[in-house]
Design a protein around this nucleic acid. Sequence first.
DNA 1: CGGCGCGGTCAAATCGATTCGACATGCGCT
DNA 2: AGCGCATGTCGAATCGATTTGACCGCGCCG
Lengths: 360, 360
Amino acid sequence: MGRRTPSNRPTLARVAERAGVSVSTASLAFSGSGPITPETRDKVFAAATDLGYTGPNPLGRQLRRGRSGIIGVVIGDHPRRAFRDPVAVQVLDGLVDALGTEKLGVLLIPGVDGGEDAVDPLIETAAMDVAVLVWGVLTKDPTLAALQRRDVPVVVGEGRAVEGAPLVALEDRAGAAEAVRHLVELGHTRIAEISLPFGRGERSGPVDADRISRADRTPTVHRMAGIRDVVEPVITWETPASLVEHGRDAATEILGTWVPASERPTAIVAHSDLLAAGAVIAARELGLRIPEDVSVAGFDGLDLPWLSPDVLTSVHQPLREKGTRLGQAAIGLLAGEEPTSVSLPVGLVPGTTTGPAPVG
Amino acid sequence: MGRRTPSNRPTLARVAERAGVSVSTASLAFSGSGPITPETRDKVFAAATDLGYTGPNPLGRQLRRGRSGIIGVVIGDHPRRAFRDPVAVQVLDGLVDALGTEKLGVLLIPGVDGGEDAVDPLIETAAMDVAVLVWGVLTKDPTLAALQRRDVPVVVGEGRAVEGAPLVALEDRAGAAEAVRHLVELGHTRIAEISLPFGRGERSGPVDADRISRADRTPTVHRMAGIRDVVEPVITWETPASLVEHGRDAATEILGTWVPASERPTAIVAHSDLLAAGAVIAARELGLRIPEDVSVAGFDGLDLPWLSPDVLTSVHQPLREKGTRLGQAAIGLLAGEEPTSVSLPVGLVPGTTTGPAPVG
DNA sequence: CGGCGCGGTCAAATCGATTCGACATGCGCT
DNA sequence: AGCGCATGTCGAATCGATTTGACCGCGCCG
């Protein structure tokens, strides 16, 4: 059991030789399915254990098969930021699970810092049978372009459909509309919006109609549209990422210094639960009662025990299912099925953070 | 630009043929380093773009090289649980970064639900040049055993050293001792401990000396030892995972019903920041002031904006650096260097959650 | 003017497996 | 007894690249 150098690692050929059979027969023995007598198979296995051979070398098998068994998962940012959002984590979980049933592995591909057209080198060179673009594609997406050049089949989560690629979407627009309708029914008229990022750049602050019209990122665009299906927000605040601190900063401005108290928004709808949680914390810090003074609605349906005693009113999404669907879409593509797209339903679940609008 | 079936995907041989050169020359052209005239190279590149060839097939290259360019990262649990802890996310981030510099990719390998000896199929069959066991190894670890059988070099984070494998550890014991010493210096004598899991099983509740002695998981064991280097806790509460809700549950018991108020612990030291945050929330819910009535110290040094206005007193660890060191260790192994281990320093950073022990 | 060396190109071996078609054996059936 | 078929085994081709060593022609130097 000493250390072995790569060069003396046993191969199928050596096993076959030792077992006194041909390489093909040895291969058949390991594949398990071919026609082979039990004795021959045992002979091969015995030789294998003698030599310390633990099964076919994946590299050889992959080359022959023309498949790597690897699915590239493009998370669009550095892990520390992408996974700071529990939403991404749950989707990934479903994805890993679904792919695991087919013995497919997940190769993590981070986004890049670089300029406009920069893509991670893995996109260009890594072996993968399918790539999953979890957070959709931009209108001119260098990552998508590189994958298409390489003929790597693609599965898209969220947003814009790509020719020949299955799309797994959520009913963002309807869900956002539902959340705002809930607020309107409670009597709110001055509703502020805290939004997800609009595009590549990192910006934060209030936005005007012009910038809104140029938003280029998919959950953002759909959720903004859904909100506007019901009401026009009194203000829209862009954030650089779905993180508690950004929601807190935005709400501190919106509820604090932005307008005189008499014109203060009575409700905030945020594009994500983390942003909404930040808004709740900001309201607490400003001495505002929730929901008596201000209502807050989120989006995602996360379980946030640390927000206790408040429970967010939120639009629940089947996040894990989104992951499993993405995985199944990838598997389907490998099986040669025609790409089919789905849009998963979402639904409002009221919590303790929304209530009737204050009178006057 | 129509769809191509795998069979008519261009190969280096076809490019060479079209360019009127040999395969070896074409290969040289793409490798970039070989001796070749600019004209020949351009001829090859022109033929390549004609055919839509985007570079050597990774599978062929990998087989020849004997390297897959993939590092398996064993996270020891399902992603939704492993990555719910920001600690894991930061380590992963450093790891991905470090490996990215060498164009190595991260293959995510989850833990399994199954019985004692179950391992993820990827462990047995996936191609990987090195495996990183981020959260250490158990005393009898089926994952480690499977990897050793396959001759996959291993890098270990945390805990027990493995023969021939670099170990990247943190000075857990000293850090834990420092945290408790801080509490003792503040006058605390009744100190409770909320601990990380002891082993595979999911248990929660107070533990006795016998169970403590049988703990088999590395950060847990070291942190317990460090605490006991300074003081014996009045109670140790085991939790099934490093999550806010478990810390909250534990602290609710410890500070609430467990003993009469006069004997209530005046300080809690938790093995992680998420557990500590849960304890802070529990204290708030019980109407206890922090730090006047109860002090809470954590471990990890996370940034937890949602705990505002409190800032945890915590032992800061270089988590991202742990990740980069793990990555560098893997790279070193691939380069044939002798495995070397490191232990990274940690340090107490006082926040607002610890203060002098209440008098009486 | 001849030989040496070097830059550039190429043929062939190699990485480790899978799989197709051929082949040998033995059995059953007429 | 002879034919055909099923069963099990094997040889050889193949997947797509990298790399070594041979080879060739040309320029430079003695």
